[in-house]
Design a protein around this nucleic acid. Sequence first.
DNA 1: GTACAATATGACCGTTTAGTCATTTTCCTG
DNA 2: CAGGAAAATGACTAAACGGTCATATTGTAC
Lengths: 221, 221
Amino acid sequence: MPSTTFFNLPEAKRTIIETAAIREFAAHGFEGAGVNAIVAGAGIAKGSFYQYFADKADLFQHVLTLVQRKKLSLASSLPPTANSRDIFAYLRWLFQMELLFELREPELARIEHHAYLQEPDNPRVMGGPEYFNDLLTQGLLHEDLAPYVDTLLAANVLGGVFHALGRYLVPRLEDRAAAIIEGSVPITEEPLAQSLLDNLMEILEAGLARDPAIRKEFFPK
Amino acid sequence: MPSTTFFNLPEAKRTIIETAAIREFAAHGFEGAGVNAIVAGAGIAKGSFYQYFADKADLFQHVLTLVQRKKLSLASSLPPTANSRDIFAYLRWLFQMELLFELREPELARIEHHAYLQEPDNPRVMGGPEYFNDLLTQGLLHEDLAPYVDTLLAANVLGGVFHALGRYLVPRLEDRAAAIIEGSVPITEEPLAQSLLDNLMEILEAGLARDPAIRKEFFPK
DNA sequence: GTACAATATGACCGTTTAGTCATTTTCCTG
DNA sequence: CAGGAAAATGACTAAACGGTCATATTGTAC
């Protein structure tokens, strides 16, 4: 954990340091990131850095909490799902938030994807298998889910999609991305973004096959 | 590309060097890997290393070709799909190969997942969006795919699942993994592995929802 | 203004880094 | 065995690394 000295800093200065750290970690990952580069980027002295943080890992953990915080704030900026008991409505909402996160904070998203690869089950990383497994288990109770679905397996499918998709959806939005990023058009009303999310949910819900009901005969439970 | 000197090396020595490189890259990623650690691990002199490779990146590219080669060899060891025109049968075969790859060569798999995160569209990395998109487009032509599916989107879904799943399936196999790794039981006849693959294909084909046909009314095209 | 604590600083530490190169050893050919 | 090519070597750079610390500056309380 960063020292109290760090938290006593004027917010502007703290932000400068955090921004420099985020840029470095996003560009080079934890192992490749350099403390020298961070202090240079932030315009502070090396000694100051070590008054704020015990070491590089300490700073990295702090950055991960920033990721969490940013996600939370994005989540509260999005209107909640109408039917909170519908697992697929919630999943759609979750992916929408992830997309918004990737648009607004691409560097934070990149850091999180890295962390997910390193340790998928780290509780600091959202969208891990455990998270989705809890969600899906609830879905089983609520009878939203097909009973033959292996929830742990499905949770990992969702985790993989969750962390891979942002990278793809952002370029796919092309020139519409700017309006969402700057906030002039809420993501909930951007037609292309909504259409992509609809299509994603169709794939997750109904699968890829033309006629799942027929195909299922080939793979009976 | 490594020098001819490297390829003239007796195979045993080459393998020692490649093994040390693979271990280091898998453990620390490209940026975190150290040339010193590799030469120490391989038991060769620093100068020899630079007679073989132009620099660290050169070696890394070579390791990526080893990944490709190993996959190819695994692929040819697996019986081809019965119906080559069935896109889902082929997908299942592909995931089976990926699972086998992760079992037999966990370090190579880790390196590939890292590379996928860094640059998903690198043609040296298998299972990228482009690969699956070609596949799915064929599927559209063959009418295996539901017509409403956005193939580029689906390709990224598959890519995400493809690279996330190995990490999960291997521990899931628990004590059955050993037999597959050592080769005493072919993966095609390991019941748990086959059952997991079946379940995965059900999710991809038929989706997660209890009744996709009904649910689709909520998300009409 | 004085005193004391909190904060900021950059020179410095030992270590490690990627990469070089003059020299030596090994190997093959005649 | 001679000679020349190919390969192996590790001491050596210059730079960068993470981390330390004595000193200097700033802010605060009286």
